[in-house]
Design a protein around this nucleic acid. Sequence first.
DNA 1: TTGTACGCGTTATCAC
DNA 2: GTGATAACGCGTACAA
Lengths: 360, 360
Amino acid sequence: MSRESDRPTRKGASSLSPRKRPTMKDVAEHAGVSPSTVSYVLNDNGSVSASRRARVLDAMRVLNYTPNESARSLKRRSASAIGLIVPDLANQFFALVSEGVERAAAERDVLVVLCAPEATERPAFHHAKLLQSQRLDGVIYLSGAGAGGSPSLILELAESGPVVLVDERIPGFDLPAVVSNGRRGARELTTYVLEQGHRRLAIIGGPDALWTAEQRLSGYREAIAACGLDPDDVPVYVGDYRQQSGTELAAIALQGPPEERPTVLLCANDLMAFGVLDYCRTAGIRVPEDVSITGFDDLPITSLVTPRLTTVRQPAREMGQRAAMLLFDLLSDEPSGETYEPFPATLQIRDSVVPPADRP
Amino acid sequence: MSRESDRPTRKGASSLSPRKRPTMKDVAEHAGVSPSTVSYVLNDNGSVSASRRARVLDAMRVLNYTPNESARSLKRRSASAIGLIVPDLANQFFALVSEGVERAAAERDVLVVLCAPEATERPAFHHAKLLQSQRLDGVIYLSGAGAGGSPSLILELAESGPVVLVDERIPGFDLPAVVSNGRRGARELTTYVLEQGHRRLAIIGGPDALWTAEQRLSGYREAIAACGLDPDDVPVYVGDYRQQSGTELAAIALQGPPEERPTVLLCANDLMAFGVLDYCRTAGIRVPEDVSITGFDDLPITSLVTPRLTTVRQPAREMGQRAAMLLFDLLSDEPSGETYEPFPATLQIRDSVVPPADRP
DNA sequence: TTGTACGCGTTATCAC
DNA sequence: GTGATAACGCGTACAA
C-alpha cells in the first residue's frame, strides 16, 4: 500500500490541504452584494430581487459554497440532529427500527446520531449531556437488553430535552412513546397455542425491568387464565432478550423427563426463541414434534430458520418512522399533540407450533 | 393519552421550557473568575491554580453547565463527529460493522452520524455536502448493494474530505480502506469444495461494480483453474447481495435436469445463500444432499439456519473498529500513515457442503 | 497565572 | 429591497 505504483494514484483531500471553505462573505463579495442578502437567499427569508438572487445563486455555485452548519446551529440554537439510542444493532429488530428513523429523518434533512450505550460502557447519562450541549435537538430511545435502561436514567434524559421512547414506558410518567399492542398480540398467540391443545406451558420472559417484557407476560397470562388454567402454575424463566439466554433457559426449562416437560415454550422475543432452537438441536429435542416454540417480533430472518417460527409481528420500520415523526412534532413550534395509537402486533402462524404429542 | 389519570404524570422538559442553558460567562461569574479561565479548565490548557480550578469545577456542577458544542465546532473547525454510510442495516454484516465503528468512536468521544442512502433515495453526493458543512470531520463508507456506490460518487466524497472505505476499493485510486482478504478466502473455500469432489459448479456472484464481488469471483476462479478446470465453464449469475436475488438466481441456476445441474452453488455472500436455501426448500431440492451451497461473511444468524452454512468469515465488528481508527489517524495532526493489513477471511467448514451424490 | 479582546460564520434587528 | 451591526458561545493570542 505504501509502495509506489504506476497507476494513477491519489489520496483523498484529507486534512493535507485544509483549503479554506468559502464563507457567506466570500459569496457576497463575489456576487457584489452584502452578506445579509446571501443569508436571505439561503433561507428564503427577506424578499430579494430576482436579479440579485440569481447573482448570489451563481456565486454560490462557482465557489462551491456550503453553509457552515456549526455556525447555523450556534445561531439558531438547534442542531437539526436527533440522537438514536440503540442497545444492540445485531438484533435485527433494532436495526429495522433504526432504518425507519433514518428514513423519516432524512426526509426532513435531519441528521441521526447513533449511540450504542452498550458498546461504549458509558452511562446513559452521557446522552443527556449530548442533548444539553445543543448537538441534539431530541432523542429517540430504543429500549432493550443492556441499554442501561433504568427508569431514572430515562427520566434524567427526558428532563434535559424531548425524548421519544420506542417499545418502552415508564410507569407513572406519560412520556411520548411508540409502542405496539404486545399484550394483545401475546394474548392471541397464547390463545392459539392453547387451542392447539397445549396445557403444559412455560414462558421464557424478557428482563423484568422492561415494559415490553411485562406486557407480553401479561398477555400470556391473561390467555391462560381465560382458558381456565391458573397462570401461576406456568413457570416463567427470566431472560434478557438475547439469543444466548434463550439457550441457557431452555436447558433449565426442558430438563425433566419428557412426560413432565412443558409441551410448548413461549419466548418473549424471536432471538431467545432462536436460542431455544439452538439448544434443542444440540440436545436432540425435536421442534415442534417434542416441544413447540413461539417467538415475538417476526424478524425477517425468521423465514430462514427451520422450523419457521410461529410468532407475533411488530412493524419495526414503521415504528421507527413514527417515532421520528412524533419527535419532530414535539420539536415543532406548536406541537399538534396528535395522539398515536399503538401499532397492532399480529399473530403469525407458522410451523413451530403443533398440537402436543401426549394429549391427556 | 390525553385523558387525565390519577397517577403522578409529567411530560418531559421538551420545548415547553426552553430555559436558557448556562454559558461559560455564567460559570465564570459564579466562580468569580474570567471566562477564559473557565475555558482553560475545560480544555486542560493553560495552567490554572488548584484553588481556582476547584471553584470553576464547582460552579460548573452547581449550574449544571454543558459546553455548547456548536460553538466549539465553529471555533475549532472540527465537529468531533464522523459520518457512517450504510447501505442496508437489515444486513447483519453492516450492522456489525456499524457497531464496531460506534464502539471505537465512543471511546474517543466522537459522534457517529448514521446515513442510509438507500432509505432516503438521496444521491450520495449529499454526503459530500455534509462533510463540507463542518458537521462531519470524515466519513466511513460501507460498500454494498444499492449504496449508490458508483466510483465517481465515492471520489467526489473523497475530494471533499477524509474518507475510509470498508470492503471497497476504487481501481486506480489509493483511498484508505479496510478490507479482508476475500480473494484468498474464496480460493480456499473453492479448493475445499473441489476437494470434496465437486466438478459442476455455479457461482451466484455479487454486483459487478463492487470490489468485493470481483475479488471473491477471482478467488473462486483461481481455485478452479488451479484444479485443472476451465473457469470459463463455470457459469456466473450476477446478484445484488440481497436475499431475494439469491432466490431468483437459484431458480435459474438449478433449472435443468438433476444430472446436468450444478452440484454446488458458490454464493458471494450469506444473504444470497439464504435466498438460495429458501428457493431449494420451496422447490423441494434438498440441501446439501441434492446441491451443496456456500456463503460468505459468516453472519451470526448462520448458526440458526439449517443446514449450517459452509462459508468464509469476515470479522465485521473488528473491521468497523479498524475503519474508525484509520479515520482518526487520518484526522490527527500528523497521521502515522500506518498501513493496515487486510483482515484474514477464514474458511468455516460446516454442513451445507457434502461430496456430490453423482461422482463420475 | 489570569484577564481582555477579537474572531469563527450565521442570523436577526434595525435603519435606510 | 438592501445593507450595516450586533449577538450566538467559545478559544486563544496578547498583555498584564
